[in-house]
């Protein structure tokens, strides 16, 4: 009997939860705020679904009832992607070690 592809996706999902568990515990507490902003940015990979949704209408029609939601989702996810990664970068750039020549 063939295995349902859903089972494979479920396996990836469960294993990723465990990977996430161990990776996040190793994050230093002082970087918890950047952790939140970067997880925010990467969860916006949902834009992949938004792009498919935006291009879902039939030929010749750009804005259909289903594609409009896709376009809206693209804008929201894009705000998050750019905002999330850039603000994380801005924060991380501020974490400096003690200057030795002082």
């Amino acid at each position: 009997m063939e295995i349902d592809p859903f089972i494979f996706r479920l396996s990836i999902f469960i294993l990723s939860i465990f990977v996430g568990y161990y990776v996040v515990w190793s994050v230093t507490p002082s970087l918890h705020t950047p952790l939140m902003s970067v997880t925010n940015a990467i969860s916006s990979v949902i834009i992949v679904g938004a792009i498919i949704a935006a291009l879902s209408s039939d030929d010749g029609v750009v804005f259909s009832s289903s594609s409009v939601y896709g376009f809206l989702a693209i804008v929201l996810a894009a705000v998050n992607i750019f905002g999330g990664f850039l603000v994380t970068q801005r924060m991380l750039a501020m974490y400096k070690k003690k200057k030795k020549d002082k």
């Binding site: 990723s16 990977v19 996430g20 990467i42």
Partner: peptide, 19 residues
């Protein structure tokens, strides 16, 4: 991610969820 059958989204969702 499950709906779209997209691994990147499933992995990310799990990571962010557990984080």
């Amino acid at each position: 991610g499950f709906t779209l059958e997209n691994t990147a989204l499933i992995i990310t969702g799990a990571l962010v969820g557990s984080s």
